[in-house]
Amino acid sequence: MKKIVLGLMVCLSVLSFAKDNTLTVGLCAAYPPFESRDTKSGDIVGFDVELANEIGKILNKKVVIKDAEWQALLGGLKNSHYDIILSAMSKQEAGANNVNLSDTYYLLNDVIVVKKDNQEISSKEDLKDKTVGVQLGSGSEKVVDKLEGLEKVARYNYNPEAFLDLKHERIDAVVVGYAYAVNQKNFKEEYKIVGKLAPAELVVVMKKGQDKLTKDINKALDTLKENGVYDSLVKKWLAVK
């Protein structure tokens, strides 16, 4: 019996050690250039992925990436499926009252995108009586909901569906994050940006009460900004090409 108990204690100790040395990151791999699946390898790549790995190095933790549906991310965090969310999530999307938030790691402007030959829309004022597409549950949706005079808001599970409807003129415009917009395939040939809306503060999200982890994440972000790694990631993934 003593051997069995001792064996169980050793197993529990090993599991605890493994968990302590792991940082599990939840994200939705459908938002390039922040996170998406490489079409050739199938690997999840992007700015947030590399940022998470760099944070892991500083915290001396192995980073494990878990892909999830966007709408399920906060629920997964609550149920301890991962330690943090790092998925281009804004303060508004996260809901500061229910979670811990890191310092802002990127300021992302929402923009109005229309087809390149559109001559009717040149600013947000021109969206009156128009149909605007937006992703469900996103910060962009919150921005659109504050706009007045829209004929209709078309809500999509993911942004590619909105861009497909825009391409085929089933909607008049899409509101989306700037970095996502300009990294669309053939963007310059097919679309144009006609206005910027409220910027979104992107943050790392943790369970409510995870104050030590929040402090550690903030220190890691500060270090990455000081040593130049953060700027190199921004240049690699978010610079307009």
Results as ranks from 00 to 15, higher is better:
V64S: 14
Y31V: 08
D126V: 03
A96Q: 14
N157E: 15
E125W: 02
V205E: 12
I58A: 07
N109I: 03
H81E: 15
V240Y: 13
A18N: 14
E120D: 13
N60T: 12
E50P: 01
D231S: 14
Y31W: 09
D145E: 12
K236N: 02
R155H: 05
L197Y: 11
L27H: 13
K208T: 03
Y105E: 05
V176E: 12
G56A: 10
D222P: 06
Y191P: 09
Q184H: 04
E35Y: 08
Y230L: 05
A181D: 02
E190A: 02
K62F: 06
A29C: 10
Y178G: 00
K236Y: 01
Q92N: 13
D172W: 01
K62R: 15
S16H: 07
V229M: 06
A29W: 03
E169M: 02
E226A: 12
I171C: 10
L74W: 00
L224V: 08
Q92F: 05
W237E: 06
N218T: 07
T131C: 02
M206S: 10
A88F: 09
K142Y: 11
D110G: 10
K185G: 00
A173P: 05
D38I: 05
L238Y: 04
V204F: 11
K167V: 00
I193Q: 01
D83E: 15
G95S: 11
V240K: 13
L108Y: 06
L101K: 05
I171N: 02
K78C: 03
A154L: 06
A52K: 01
K66S: 12
V132K: 00
K192Q: 09
N159R: 04
L107I: 11
D48Y: 08
D103C: 01
Q210P: 04
V63D: 14
I112C: 08
I112P: 05
A181E: 07
E226I: 07
N118P: 04
K152N: 14
E125R: 04
D43T: 10
G139W: 05
K124L: 04
I85L: 07
S16L: 10
N97I: 00
A88R: 03
L12V: 13
P199F: 09
E201C: 04
H168S: 10
T24F: 11
Q92M: 07
L197T: 12
E148W: 01
L202S: 11
N21A: 04
N60G: 09
N100G: 05
K130S: 06
Q135N: 09
N157S: 14
Q184E: 09
K3A: 13
P33T: 08
V64N: 15
I65N: 12
E226L: 03
K19V: 13
S41I: 04
V143H: 04
L101C: 08
Q210K: 15
K167G: 03
K167I: 00
L233E: 06
